[in-house]
Design a protein around this nucleic acid. Structure first.
Length: 517
RNA sequence: GCGGGAAUAGCUCAGUGGUAGAGCAUCAGCUUCCCAAGCUGAGGGUCGAGGGUUCGAUCCCCUUUUCCCGCUCCA
């Protein structure tokens, strides 16, 4: 089957079985925003728990945090988000290239002043020794003309920029007859402002309203709480702060289902270390995080590292853990050595010391940071893509059949077990419900009595339930039931009293986490 | 954002300028002792939205929204 078809089927499956719905679907939907349905939310919560336990539960030196989405606007000035992602963009319809409108105009201005300089240089050659440059610039008609043009364009540009007048900027590009450097075409689209960050207003009324941003990453909430956590928790370096939370980015193109969304969830851990030890901790977390992924038991060839060659302004080393999605290898998690960039920036902007006194070294310093940052929604997609199978099976009577099964790792499955009476009579439903009522405190359970037993098995396969317990007539005699395994479809007869123990062992998160430490 | 394609029942799709169809799914009942698609019955659609042409539009035209593919962008 084509990979592309697999992806289509996977997304259809997500909707059909209540994992993911498009946001506001009854109002025609909201682009690049999705809701998690009844099974989606369970799977997502299980992924969070797997991550949280691997980070916070099992590491003495990592603690959790839940910082607010709203933060002081200066946070984003310090982090560089306000300046770095605020560009007016324009497309050329013929070349299909996108440009920063302000850069096009600046380049045009640059060209004009070059022209002036060339004229001056030409004149200088012509007049030789007695050339008076200042006089020439003041009197030459050509230069005056060019200068006037340059100044008028610059004025309009500054005015339009200050007012955020996008139409004015476009008009300027047209009036200056600026052409696409690639195609020479002047067929431009509208100018649009693409801000990375969404903003909103805080305050009772608009008159003294304050613009604040919806955070584009959770990391800054950790950085601004560094001192709080370090002091109140009496944390010694090295130590880490972990956080799971929503983040928002106004993506220019958001596509590929939940891979790139405008509202998404991150699981981030910032590990604070002594300067000079960054290489060693970077390698440590690279290794640890890859183990976390592989411990789920999917094919190892689905994962790879992708080291960044071009580094962001704050990093001195960076790598992605990529997963082989149906649409190719794509980033799921990033591990970055962020140096002391963030804390230093905040120290500068807030005017307070963000330093740690190291008893061993007997001095204070701004700690370095190694970050692990994983997209929860991308992780969710990873798990689904790796689990979704369309199988051909041969029935008892020799006929070919198909089944769709989510081979989820049991610890992540939204429903751990389903309990069925083989038939809806002879007291079997009552016995089944009693068993379910007993097990529901320990596992996410379902009870179903409708439809043929085979159909019920298939429904559970489709949502990835690893175990189905069936109560038959023999149960009434010897208190045994059958347990049917999702992946092999094989059955085993076991005593009712042993169910809890058997299933606990198989859905154990401990068994998986033990592979990590 | 640009270019191309799509949108009809929960899902997969058929269909016609003149009152909207199938299969599966759902619900109720029957049947059924282990791997879906037996039987009977029922519910469910202003044919994505808005406008135009027309006596009449799900169908023709325009606009718009959403999704898919390609390009582009991406810390």
């Amino acid at each position: 089957m084509l990979q592309e078809d697999i992806f289509k089927k996977l997304t259809a499956h997500c909707k059909e079985y209540g994992f993911i719905f498009q946001s506001s679907e009854i109002y025609d939907g909201l682009s690049a925003v999705y809701d998690y349905g009844q099974y989606g939310v369970e799977l997502k919560n299980n992924i969070k728990k797997y991550w949280w336990d691997a980070m916070v539960l099992l590491n003495d030196d990592i603690v959790g945090l839940d910082s607010a989405i709203f933060m002081h606007p200066d946070v984003w000035k310090a982090s560089g988000h306000v300046d770095a992602f605020n560009d007016p963009l324009i497309d050329n319809r013929d070349s299909k290239k996108r440009y920063r409108a302000d850069v096009l105009i600046e380049e045009f201005l640059e060209k004009l002043s070059e022209k002036i300089n060339k004229e001056v240089a030409k004149a200088a050659r012509r007049f030789g020794e007695e050339f008076d440059e200042a006089m020439f610039r003041k009197t030459n008609a050509r230069i005056l003309d060019l200068n006037q043009r340059l100044e008028s364009v610059r004025m309009r540009f500054v005015e339009a920029s200050e007012k955020g007048d996008l139409d004015g900027i476009r008009q300027l590009i047209i009036d200056c007859e600026i052409a696409d450097p690639v195609s020479g075409s002047r067929n431009w689209t509208e100018v649009r402002q693409f801000n990375l960050m969404f903003d909103t207003r805080v305050g009772s009324v608009s008159e003294d309203a304050n613009t604040i941003y919806l955070r584009p990453e959770t990391a800054q909430g950790i950085f601004v709480n560094f001192m709080n956590v370090q002091k109140s928790g009496r944390m010694k370096l090295p130590f880490g702060i972990a956080q799971i939370g929503k983040a928002f980015r106004n993506e220019i193109v958001a596509r590929q289902f939940i891979f790139r969304m405008r509202e998404f969830e991150q699981m981030e851990m910032q590990f604070f270390i002594r300067p000079g030890e960054e290489k060693q901790w970077y390698e440590y977390w690279k290794d640890k995080r890859m183990k976390w992924h592989k411990a789920l038991g999917f094919s190892e060839s689905k994962y790879r590292f992708h080291d960044h060659v071009k580094l962001a302004h704050y990093a001195d080393a960076a790598t992605d853990i990529e997963f082989d999605f149906p649409f190719g290898f794509k980033e799921v998690e990033g591990i970055h050595s962020r140096t002391d960039y963030d804390l230093s920036q905040h120290q500068k902007f807030c005017g307070k010391k963000l330093q740690y006194f190291d008893n061993e070294l007997n001095k204070s310093y701004v700690p370095y940071v190694v970050e692990t940052s994983i997209g929860l929604d991308r992780m969710f997609l990873t798990v689904l893509a790796a689990s979704w199978k369309e199988e051909k099976i041969t029935k008892a009577n020799g006929q070919e059949d198909e089944r769709v099964v989510l081979q989820l790792p049991p610890l992540l499955a939204p429903v751990k077990l389903a309990v069925f009476p083989l038939v809806k009579k002879d007291g079997l439903p009552e016995i089944s419900q009693k068993i379910r009522d007993d097990l529901r405190f320990d596992f996410a359970c379902q009870y179903e009595e409708k439809d043929s037993i085979g159909r019920r098995y298939r429904r559970q396969d489709a949502i990835g339930t690893p175990f189905c317990i069936t109560i038959d007539h023999q149960t009434r005699e010897d208190e045994t039931v059958t347990i049917r395994y999702r992946d092999t479809m094989e059955q085993e007869r076991v005593p009712v009293g042993k169910l809890r123990e058997i299933i606990s062992e198989k859905v154990s998160i401990k068994k998986v986490l033990e592979k990590l430490y």
